[in-house]
Amino acid sequence: MSDDSRTNILQRLEAGLGTLPYPGCLPAPDSIPSPLPDAASVAVQHGPADWRLLRTELTNLRAELDVATTRAELAEALKRLVRAYGIETAVCWEHGRLASIGIDVLLAAAGVKVLAATCVEESGGCRALRDVDLGVTAADAVFLDCGAIAVRSGIGRPRSISLVPRVHLAVVAEEDLQPGLHVLPELLRAWGEEEGGLPSAIHLISGPSGTADIELVYVQGVHGPLALHVLALSGDWAGAEGHKR
């Protein structure tokens, strides 16, 4: 019975910890936790240099980066992406940033049929996106030390959008940039405070899915998206300001 097991397991653990000596090199129970090392962190410069750094990281991760400083550049980048990946259908997060750049309109202009994010909820989950080519999200954070993009789940932002379609497009902005993973705990705590707790899912995405399970030969794209594309809104982006959520 699980309850008895619970009691027994906890009792055994308590009793087990009673036996001394404990390896001396391990910290004592009430010592204050050391800070997380931040040697790998990168200073956020709030300028084009950040995107150059991000490009280096994303290239290593086999992800693409487009930097747009104007609406025109954004539209062009989207058109190229649509052509390159043969995008016919797309689904987007419901998100202030995506709304303010008019992502639906831009994609439609590129000949893409855009589904509402609610289709996931309405048709009972991931299956709705099975044959969708492109999933578009914003980003809750972008870590410059490693190129990882954090996405939080939520209403209008189902997890499957960045998972099930063939291609994942993340639209990022300067305000997303973080110097390194060492800030992750404080970021998560801040989000938790904003929302009254952590969301049901947060994913740190570093590149497309991949595997080398056959003969140790790397193949890009297996169960997750086959490609990760990042679109950075750079500079004083009029019209893209606005809430992150």
Binding site: T118, E121, G147, G197, A201
Partner: peptide, 22 residues
């Protein structure tokens, strides 16, 4: 040798009400 795995999932409980997946 990777800085991070391609996907790191931090899952806190089941899906929330009105969420579409999970």
């Amino acid at each position: 040798g990777q800085k991070l795995s391609a996907y790191v999932s931090l899952l806190s409980g089941p899906r929330r009400a009105a969420e579409g997946d999970g």
